[in-house]
Design a binder for these strands. Structure first.
Lengths: 340, 340
DNA sequence: GCTGGTATCCGAAACGTTTCGGATATATAC
DNA sequence: GTATATATCCGAAACGTTTCGGATACCAGC
């Protein structure tokens, strides 16, 4: 029994049309009737039905985000990205609709519900996979979207995206380690299925090559982006390669896990083994010792993505915006002192 | 130009009604026509318009959450609560609609839009204030909602809520410190306007009283729930009261800040000054030294709230569920050894 | 008195679904 | 043969808005 325009119309004696126009501020309704109508609306506590309005206007003032379920949950990436998104959306008077699914058919189903089902005006897609079906779908139905990240290395990316140049970032981290005298540098990569995994791997190889260091398969492991996964994977790496003097975790959480693994071995982070991460989350700075990392400001990424998406919704764009941002190497105690 | 029921009707030669019923699986449509219709729907890539469906069904399968903007942003509480909510909502095939606002009129506006505007079937309200206008509003329009937290001490709470008994939690923490030989225990409280601030204060006073320790106004400060705020406030507390040997931060973030402040003074956390927190966030466990804290599993709180809300939406309840959960004291190195 | 303009109002259609209450045709029962 | 049941379909109304295209009344200008 919420109050509708019809109720106000009945009580005021005017038509639904006039009530609607009075409330919307059109100037073809007299001052007198407008104030009557406003008074009644106020008295009845009228609240326009947003769903009806959306149906009529064919727009929702809502952006959508579909997050991976569970296993990535304690990854700070989405938390922070998400904060940037909802805060920026609110600035533009947009709400944010969220769902979580496992990767796979359920995920596509959610995208169809949000985009095809007209629940949102635009979508932000994050964590791209190689040949990502979500992107294909959104392109096919011409629904506005922006992507955090690109397609995998070598695949074309003909859509709006914003991404940090993690290849260069990791390369700089490797160079930093090399400059400190390290030559046996291990790396914990993200899941191979993730598009950005390749860029980081390429950065690792690029850094080694520049330094004239031979790439060794055995120094590479894949982790699951979690703290616990970092502990586990670093353990494996250290057991298999006692000669390692440095480890790169491809996100800060895994790097923090790696630090713990090093300490568990009775070794000193920064003395015996240098550790570096990627992301620049707050916990990295607060760790003991503080973590050297490649910082990609995620909150700001969320802001930029949202601004871009909303702009894209407002005026269908002429050219597709693609922005590649430079991350910043932040050296802290976890990489220790130059070794000679 | 998304495809609608009308398009399928036109192409198949059946009426919109029949198409609708075929797709919905009613049994008053023959196997033959059903399969024709399904085929065409599939071919055209039909995706039901959720907004139209919501309008007709007068329900949205969506729960709403309105988060405080900015200053609380780097508080992990909402991030984790939020994860619990969206994950559980997804289990029930509910989406989650989010907005952020500053506390105040804009916040009420958002509640009206979500609840009165029929955008969501139910709301989760968190961070209650004393005599919270949001709760009054939702009660007045009889919109389903559940609350994380209660009204302020002494005010009646005639609505569905789930809360941790933080009074008992803080009391236990005080008792723990007392048992370790501390008598000069400072506390950093949350903003007074927050309903739970009073419970924690009461717990502090209760703990002191049990131990026969006189309450001293000067040992109390109010913080803003952030890490930086914790550093600042602990600093103030320590400068003013050099006799302090223990500090309680009323959330982990402020407690971690307090640890940093202690260390900045050249003092040892756990040796010179004991520190305890409240929440049990992951960072507390990983801190150096690990933080003694009163753990209130927030993710689980989000799960329970969402389950309760959805149940409340499904069958209007007979009695209002109110659950008071016991938090758990977790002793770690930040509280050091017994002093004698 | 007629014309044109302006101010104010409103009916009806539309957005895309779902559903109520039939309508039609065919089969079954007697 | 009629009466009843069943299977299959559909028109129209409804959900609550917004908006297009008038309609009406009144005024000024000639």
């Amino acid at each position: 029994m919420p109050v509708t325009l019809k109720d106000i119309a009945a009580k005021s004696g005017f038509s639904v049309t006039t009530v609607s126009r009075a409330l919307a501020g059109y100037n073809d309704v007299s001052q007198n009737t407008r104030s009557q109508i406003l008074a009644i609306a106020d008295e009845l506590g009228y609240q326009p039905n947003q769903v009806a309005r959306q149906l009529q206007k064919q727009s929702t003032n809502t952006v959508g985000l579909i997050m991976p379920a569970r296993q990535d949950f304690h990854d700070d990436f989405f938390s922070v990205l998400f904060k940037g998104i909802i805060y920026t959306a609110a600035q533009h008077n947009f709400d944010v609709l969220i769902s979580t699914t496992q990767h796979g058919e359920a995920e596509m189903e959610a995208y169809r519900r949000f985009a095809g089902g007209n629940r949102v005006d635009g979508l932000i897609v994050a964590r791209t996979y190689r040949d990502d079906p979500r992107i294909e779908y959104l392109k096919s139905i011409k629904h506005p979207f922006v992507v955090a990240g690109r397609s995998a290395l070598g695949h074309g990316s003909d859509f709006a995206y914003i991404d940090y140049d993690s290849q260069t970032g990791i390369e700089q981290l490797v160079e930093h380690f090399v400059a400190y005298g390290h030559r046996n540098i291990g790396i914990i990569l993200p899941d191979e299925a993730l598009a950005f995994s390749e860029y980081r791997f390429a950065g690792y190889q690029g850094g080694l090559k520049k330094a004239g260091i031979l790439f060794r398969e055995s120094f590479v492991e894949y982790g699951d982006m979690t703290y616990a996964g970092g502990v586990r994977t670093a353990q494996t790496l250290l057991n298999r390669n006692p000669e390692l003097t440095a480890i790169i975790g491809c996100n800060d959480l895994m790097a923090l896990g790696a630090m713990a693994a090093v300490q568990n071995c009775g070794l000193q982070v920064g003395q015996d083994i240098a550790v570096g991460g990627f992301d620049g989350i707050p916990a990295a700075e607060r760790a003991t010792p503080p973590l050297t990392t490649v910082s990609q400001p995620i909150y700001e990424l969320g802001e930029m993505l949202t601004d871009l998406l909303i702009q894209l919704i407002a005026d269908s764009p002429t050219d597709t915006v693609q922005r590649l941002l430079q991350p910043e190497l932040i050296v802290r105690a976890s990489s220790g002192q130059p070794r000679r």
